[in-house]
Simulated scan of single mutants.
Amino acid sequence: MPPTPPLTVVFAHGYCLNQDSWHFQREAFRDGLRLVFWDQRSHGRSERSRSYLAGQQSSIDQLGEDLGAVIDAVAPTGPLVLVGHSMGGMTIMALADQRPELFAERVAGVALLGTTAGSWRGVTLGLPGVGARMFHRIGPGVIKALGRQAGLVERGRRLSSELTAAIYQKFSFGSDDIDPALAHFAQDLLEATPVDVVAEFFPVFPAHEKTAALAVLRDIPTLVMAGTRDLLTPPSHSEAIAAELPDAELDIVPDTGHLLMLERPDLVDARLADLLERAAAHCGAPLPQHVHDLAQATRRA
């Protein structure tokens, strides 16, 4: 019987970000593993969604199909580990719903970081109850209107970048003690996403409901992580995912916000290394020694 090929690890980034949000993970795992980074449609270096430009509303299901197309194109054989943050985690759930056979035959591990399986309308964003309900009621319309005035809004974003830095930090990180260079890096990622792309995808989150699709992951080593101060996908959403996956590793990280892979890279890297160990054992794939060494940090924590 031929040996199992090495793992291919596919990273799916979140809303208003791009593949550079995995900067620390790219550095940690670049030796001895095959890594796939890609920009979701309309984000980063990907072109604008042609279907959206033609008048079709974007959806998480579309993103799931995109992920499947990426896998088919660049990793058509061998075991896979899928890592998704925020919207990227939803993308993985959509793919599980669409192609459960892929997960049964090839997916050896899944990481869901700062994401949700549904019920996003209940997220308060740190606002009082009345404010949260008002935001969910009028927010989509306001953001859609801003998207129609993209040129004007983009000029305003550039002029007010210092004023908006505090808002970006509040919704990105859970600690006030953030390296200014890291805060600027995160802000650059967010501001690189055009406002009309922000408007394109914002309506998809209330419609996202993939709790039933989590059943596809029940026999697959899975890591679920969230920060206690995540205002966009609060830890209760990760706890709800873990409740559907009794064998999943759940890690709720204190004093950490939505961009946990940037805010706590050492911890996230160690948890991912532990997942890669479990995935390799699950499918019999080889694993570089440095991944085993990195996983030891999880067991020492």
Score class of each variant (00 low, 15 high):
P2V: 09
T4Q: 12
T4H: 10
T4R: 13
L7G: 05
V10Q: 03
F11W: 06
G14W: 00
G14L: 02
G14H: 00
C16F: 10
N18I: 00
D20E: 10
H23R: 13
E27C: 10
F29V: 05
R30F: 13
D31Y: 11
L33E: 05
L35H: 10
R41D: 02
R45T: 11
R48V: 11
S49G: 09
A54R: 11
D61V: 11
D61P: 11
D66G: 05
G68I: 03
A69C: 13
L80C: 04
V81W: 00
G84P: 01
H85I: 02
H85D: 01
S86E: 03
G88P: 07
G89Q: 00
M90S: 08
M90I: 07
M90R: 10
M93V: 00
M93Y: 08
L95S: 02
Q98E: 03
Q98P: 04
A104F: 09
R106G: 07
G109H: 01
T115L: 04
T115H: 07
T115F: 03
A117W: 03
S119Y: 15
V123M: 06
G126M: 06
L127F: 07
V130F: 13
R133Y: 06
I138T: 10
R148I: 05
Q149F: 15
A150N: 02
A150E: 12
G151L: 12
G151F: 12
L152K: 14
V153G: 01
E154S: 12
E154F: 11
R155A: 13
R155L: 15
R157Q: 14
S160W: 13
S161F: 11
E162A: 15
E162V: 14
E162G: 14
A165E: 15
A165H: 11
I167Q: 15
I167H: 15
Q169W: 14
F171G: 02
F171N: 05
F173M: 10
F173D: 06
G174N: 09
D176S: 12
I178H: 11
D179F: 07
D179W: 04
D179A: 12
L182A: 02
F185V: 08
A186Q: 10
L189E: 01
L189D: 02
A192I: 06
V195E: 03
D196R: 12
V198S: 13
F202W: 06
V204N: 08
H208S: 11
E209Q: 12
T211F: 15
L214A: 06
V216K: 10
L217Q: 04
L217P: 09
L217Y: 08
R218C: 14
I220D: 08
P221M: 00
L223R: 00
L223M: 07
V224W: 01
M225G: 09
G227F: 01
T228H: 07
R229G: 10
D230P: 08
L232Y: 03
S238M: 04
E239I: 12
I241W: 08
I241K: 02
E244V: 12
E244C: 15
L245D: 07
L245F: 04
A248F: 06
E249D: 04
D251G: 01
I252P: 00
I252V: 14
V253M: 09
P254S: 05
P254A: 07
T256G: 02
L259A: 08
L259S: 04
L260E: 02
L262Y: 00
E263R: 00
D266H: 10
L267K: 08
D269V: 06
D269N: 15
R278L: 00
A280S: 08
A285Q: 07
D293P: 05
A295I: 04
T298M: 01
R299Q: 08
R299T: 13
